[in-house]
Computed example of a mutant assay.
Amino acid sequence: MPDSSRRERAFDVARGLAILAIVVGHVLRGLTAADLVPRTSPTVLEVDDALYVWHLAVFAVLAGVFLRPGVEKHGVGGYLRSRLPLFVHLYVVWTVVQAAVRFVTGRSGDGEEALGNIFTAFLVADGPLWWLGFLVVVSVAGAVARPWRSRSWAVGSTLAVVAVSLAAWGWTGPWLFLEGVALTGFFWLGILVGRGGVSRLTAPPLAGRLAAAGVVVGGALMVLADPMPPSSWIGPRTLVAVGLGLVASSVLCAGAFGVSGVLARTALVRPLAFLGERSLEIFLAHVVATSLTRNLLSGLGVDEVWVHLVLGSAAGVLVPLGLWWAGSRLGFPWLFELPPALRAARRRDPRRQTLDRSFN
C-alpha cells in the first residue's frame, strides 16, 4: 500500500480503536448501573477515566479534519444540508428504538410513564446519543465561523473555543446540545490542523514516537494522578484535575493517532479499518446490543464480570454490524441512513456532499 493510502487508512484505524474503547466503556458502565460491579470501585473508576479521556477526543479531531474541505467544496449551506438532516434523523430513530427496547424489557414503566420517558429522552439525549447533538452544534459553528479565513481569525476563534472548552471540562450538561462542550477544542484543532497535519502524526518515524509517548506519559498520568476526562467526571472539579485532564487527553489522543499509524502498517489494518468505516453503525446500535446481552446473561445466572465484559463487548460490535449488513440487503437501511425520500432529495441537490460513513 502506498504511504499516502496507508496514512488515510490510519484514520479508519484510529476510529476503529476509539469505537472499541467506547463499546468497552459502555459495557463497564452498564455493569455498574446493574450493580454487577461496585459503582465506586477504584479499578472501575480508573478504567472508565482511562477510556473516556481520549476516545471521543479522537472522533472530535477527525470530525474537524473533514469540515474545511466540505465547506470549501460545497459552501456553508451545502455542507450543512449534507450533514444535519442525517444527524437529526438518526437522533430521532435511535431515541425511539432505545425507548422501545426499554419498554419491551420492562425498564421504562407502562402507559403514561413510558410515554413521558420518551419525551424526556428527546430533551436530554438518551445515553450516548448526545454526540449527535454535539456534532450539530460544532458543525454549524465551524462552518459558519470558518476559522481558517485568516491568521487573526484563527487565533481569536481558537482562544474563544479553548476558553469555553476548559470552562466546560468534565461537566455534563443536563440537556441536549450541552453535553460534550469540552470536546469543541479538539474539533477546532482538527479544523485548523487539517488532514495533512493529522496524517503526519500517523507517518513514520513520528507515529512510533507518539505511540510510545502516549503509552508511557499518558499511562503514567492515569496511574499516578487523577486526570479529569473532558466529557465525563463524577469527582470534584479542580484546576489541577482540569489541567491534568487536558494534558492526558492531548497526549493520549496524539498517542492514539501514533498507534494507528503503526498498526496501519500491520495485518491488523484490515479489521480495525473496517470497524472504523462502520463506526457510525456500531455507535448507534451498541448500547441496545450490550444492554440486551447483559440482561440475557443475568437471566441465565451468569455474574462473572469477565464474561459480561467479553460477551457484551463482542455483542456491542457484532450485532450492529449484523444490523447494518441485514438492513442493506433486506431494505431497511434507514436505521443508519436517511429515508429514501430524503436521500432522493439530496441526490437532486447538485451541491450535496457525500457524507463519510464513518463515525465523524
Rank of each mutant, 00 (worst) to 15 (best):
F177V: 08
V181P: 08
V144K: 08
G142C: 03
L166R: 01
V140S: 04
T172Y: 10
L176P: 00
L176M: 05
A163R: 02
S165F: 02
V136P: 07
V138H: 03
V164Q: 01
L129G: 10
R151F: 13
L166M: 05
S150R: 10
V161L: 00
A145Y: 10
V136K: 06
G185C: 11
R146A: 04
G170F: 06
A143E: 05
L176E: 02
S139T: 14
F134Y: 13
R146K: 00
S139G: 13
P147Q: 00
F187A: 06
W131T: 11
S139A: 14
G180T: 01
T158M: 10
P147Y: 00
L135R: 02
W153R: 15
A167Y: 07
L183H: 06
G133D: 05
W171C: 14
W131C: 14
L176H: 04
A167P: 01
T172W: 15
A163N: 01
R151S: 14
R149Q: 13
W130R: 06
W131E: 13
S139E: 09
L135M: 08
L135Q: 07
G170V: 04
G142N: 00
W175C: 08
L178Q: 13
V164T: 05
A143Q: 04
V137I: 14
V155Y: 09
A154I: 05
E179D: 13
A163C: 03
V155D: 04
L132W: 12
E179V: 15
W130V: 02
F134Q: 10
W175I: 14
W169Q: 06
R151Q: 13
V161P: 00
S152Y: 14
V144R: 09
L129Y: 07
S139W: 09
V137F: 10
W148E: 04
A160L: 11
G133M: 01
G133P: 01
S152P: 15
P174T: 09
W169P: 07
G156F: 14
W175V: 12
W171R: 13
R146D: 02
F187E: 00
V162K: 02
A160V: 09
V181I: 11
A141R: 08
A141D: 07
L176Q: 04
A141S: 07
T158S: 12
A145H: 11
S150I: 09
G173T: 03
V164F: 03
S165L: 06
S157C: 11
F134K: 10
A163W: 04
G173W: 03
T158P: 08
S165D: 02
V162N: 01
L183D: 11
A154M: 01
L159W: 03
R149H: 14
V164K: 00
W130M: 04
A168S: 08
S152W: 12
W153T: 10
T184F: 14
V162T: 03
P174G: 12
G133S: 05
E179S: 12
S152G: 13
W131Q: 14
W175L: 13
V136G: 06
V155R: 06
A163D: 02
L178D: 13
W131P: 11
V138L: 05
R149G: 11
A143C: 06
V162M: 02
G142H: 00
V140D: 04
P128S: 11
V181A: 12
R151Y: 15
T158H: 07
A182S: 12
V137Q: 10
A167K: 03
